[in-house]
Nucleic acid binder design. Sequence first.
DNA 1: CTGTTAGCGCTTTCAA
DNA 2: TTGAAAGCGCTAACAG
Lengths: 344, 344
Amino acid sequence: MSIQEVAKQAGVSSATVSRVFNLPDKVTEATRERVKRIAKALGYMPNASARALRTQRSRVLGVVLPTLLNPVFAECLDGIASAATAAGYAILPVTTDYQLAQEDQAVNLLLAGNVDGMILVVSNPSTSRALKRLQAAKLPYVLAYNRHTAHPCVSVDSQAAVVALVAYLAQLGHRRITLVTGQLAASDRAQQRLRGFKKGMMAAGLKTSDLLEVPFVKSAAQDISKLLLIKGRPTALVCSNDLLAIRSIRAAHLAGLSVPNDLSVVGFDGISIGEDLTPILSTITQPNAEMGRRATGLLVQALAGGKPLKPSSSLTLEHAFREGESCARPAPILMEILKSHKKI
Amino acid sequence: MSIQEVAKQAGVSSATVSRVFNLPDKVTEATRERVKRIAKALGYMPNASARALRTQRSRVLGVVLPTLLNPVFAECLDGIASAATAAGYAILPVTTDYQLAQEDQAVNLLLAGNVDGMILVVSNPSTSRALKRLQAAKLPYVLAYNRHTAHPCVSVDSQAAVVALVAYLAQLGHRRITLVTGQLAASDRAQQRLRGFKKGMMAAGLKTSDLLEVPFVKSAAQDISKLLLIKGRPTALVCSNDLLAIRSIRAAHLAGLSVPNDLSVVGFDGISIGEDLTPILSTITQPNAEMGRRATGLLVQALAGGKPLKPSSSLTLEHAFREGESCARPAPILMEILKSHKKI
DNA sequence: CTGTTAGCGCTTTCAA
DNA sequence: TTGAAAGCGCTAACAG
């Protein structure tokens, strides 16, 4: 079903049919209606490839994400998808599994796919070769979650969030707080959160060396539970993301500790499932879907204007602390015991 | 960077350049290498739209899913994405939020997007208008999760799984088992699981009327907890999906019951996060990523053969029961109390 | 307001 | 083995 067929049936030229769909004002109402009717009857749908070839714009947005298995990114993609659809764009998502090599491949794939622009979450904007390629290709793009002065980003201020969180925990009475993080090298977010943690600990006058890097997802709960079995164990865990927080709660269980009575656990991300858990996950929430929507909005706007997206158009969205049920004041008795251990 | 440019620089015709990439055997090694070298130096990438227009195949697969917010489908999409990429296809996902109207729209959108085929999870294959359209358009497609003799499907035998599950619970000693389900009308899976439940209860000689339909996600935990506060409450909950199971565990908590001591909760889906929870979710697991991969494989194969995908090529994948920690033998004392309540 | 026409970049006969 | 040329379906000057 091509435009020619419709034109023939309607007794007009293909140009007129094209106008009916793209510049309806430039066609008489009479012909417009007739053409529409016939097009509909024939089930005509414009050929996207032909249109893209002719206009040099595919109306497709590439999306590069670490994984869909972490609900953070699934939620974000959901936001991207809805905003893109609303703006008349299709999306073409690719995952990288946090691997730099795959990041490169992903960008290549999308470049080859003629996308008009890209939304991406990279490991680290400073070192990403994929980003360099993108800039070389002069393709409009926007980063999500990443935060870097040299790139247009939509993100939250993770560092400030964690600073405030540590202050809150300290104020609750926690003195032994450990940061549980995934591979620091794999994510600038993890690094920012670490900086926030150090800063917060310093500000609270607490020693800041308590950090547990959990590189392997599989053994995370075991690794964390080991930490909880030692004398002078932490009374609170600040987890770099919600998935780690969930595993930390499991680790507490494995170590025979109850959350939040024996151990406070706080996450970061605000994945929606956290609200349904028992205990409800205490966490710093990010507006994940909104993050995707805003990133998409920025990109679509840039595309419409034909302008390159400037780093100065970066957006910092609001985060929030969700109290939840996995975080509490440390039990006074527990504090005494731990203190005495310290003295030994 | 067009093929013409490469041709000119290499001193050959565009046809030869095209052959170098598509039919390399039909070109002398010498020219092949030279063209490749120059193409690489120029950063040439074939234009996907032009190729699609010319060949009438976009190498894009449409994907229609209810939502990305349920990890089941995120996991499945992950499988689809990896299989599609491996086969040289891009994917174009659209979500329907379980709405029939959006299902229609989604299919239209993808049809307009010139996809070569579609993988979809619909509400109900029997009644789906979207599927009719697809068939009318003669576009190859395959359903995932859905199960219907008139369509090519990749699924698990939910009904049999639940029959076996109920038998297992009965054998553990449970007599009061309630099925917790989402909107039955919105999903054929829910209906199949219900059938399995009824069949299983019947086989175990238990009364089968215990069913709780929870239409609103928001209030799910509250709704379920009400059920748990009545006299003669169930000792086991069979949940139609893992998200409901998670909310049921919360409901138990709200009702002051502990899982699995006071109440057994079993889910359905096998979302990966279930293994990290405390208690580990007892559930019937489906191979979600594999489901996506197999569906993609079937579709890609059909596309390669130029054959329509027949219902007879449907695949039933293996499900399994994951014991987990949210399911146990009912406490004997509890049974006594409940029995006495029944007598009152 | 409408039609004619050129051509987007690629693949694929057909000839050489 | 390679090249010439047509044409996929559409849009956008340009002319009328």
